[in-house]
């Protein structure tokens, strides 16, 4: 089934962006220290599981990031990597930028959630430049996180706006880091990047492995216990 067909097929229950963030947040183990990257990952702070204590790190010098503030409660000097207003949870702290990256590069961060332009079957990540001369590149903390975090998970739409696969055999855009991504959360599936290839652990309702494979370049394998990917309305 081609993308157009998938997009129009009402039987395929694609996740919204908030639902992708919710699903990824609910995968994070209790007690983890987790960095949230610019874009979709920063919204995970709004959907953290209440039964776990997870400490969120922000590259601009914050441990203990909380959800977005109520309207009218925003503080322009309390922001996340996306420059959106946040709150600080009890126990949270502020520190200089170089210490924020000591935590990242020194291997103290358990997990980084990042966005992507492309991810390869080997776990290569490309997310800083499309080499468009009119569109400046922006690396931010992505290369530090990809090199320093113990694990890297990616949150992304399954395909580009034009319908091309973002999960590819080999990245066409310049790499952020090689062989770092271990898990991919998309609007259609949850995929493990395993040593012997990509394993589909969850798919949205109405999706088949054949249809998902058409939207994904590398070969997909279905996990024996593959589940339906669902999320509450958010």
């Amino acid at each position: 089934m081609a993308l157009e067909a998938v997009a129009q097929d009402e039987a395929v229950k694609k996740l919204t962006r908030n639902q992708v963030a919710w699903r990824a947040a609910n995968e994070i183990p209790d007690g983890s220290f987790v960095n949230l990257g610019i874009g979709l990952p920063t919204t995970c702070a709004n959907f953290m599981p209440e039964d776990r204590e997870i400490v969120l790190h922000s590259e601009n010098g914050i441990l203990g990031v909380g959800p977005a503030p109520a309207e009218g409660e925003e503080d322009p000097e309390l922001i996340n990597a996306s420059k959106d207003p946040i709150t600080l949870v009890p126990g949270g702290s502020f520190f200089v930028h170089s210490d924020a990256f000591v935590m990242i590069r020194g291997g103290h961060i358990d997990l980084a959630l990042l966005g992507a332009f492309e991810i390869s079957a080997d776990g290569d990540l490309a997310n800083w430049t499309t080499e468009n001369p009119n569109f400046p590149p922006g690396v931010g903390g992505a290369m530090d996180l990809a090199a320093g975090a113990k694990q890297v998970w990616v949150l992304t739409d399954h395909v580009t706006r034009k319908g091309a696969p973002k999960i590819v055999n080999k990245c066409s855009y310049p790499l952020t880091a090689q062989k770092v991504v271990t898990k991919i959360f998309t609007d259609l599936a949850v995929i493990d990047v395993a040593p012997d290839g990509l394993v589909v652990r969850e798919m949205v309702e109405g999706m088949t492995l054949e249809a998902l494979q058409e939207l994904t370049e590398p070969k997909l394998t279905l996990a024996p216990d593959c589940k339906v990917l669902t999320a509450p309305a958010l």
Binding site: A100, F101, R105, V139, G141, D144, G148, P174, L175
Partner: peptide, 30 residues
């Protein structure tokens, strides 16, 4: 364009009198 941690560490090195440093950030990239 400098990775953010490399940017802050390069300035920290300047402030600390460090002549240079090795970092894993950016290995194998443009």
């Amino acid at each position: 364009l400098v990775p953010q941690g490399t940017l802050s560490e390069r300035m920290r090195a300047a402030g600390a009198g460090i002549g240079a440093f090795y970092t894993p950030t950016g290995v194998g990239t443009k």
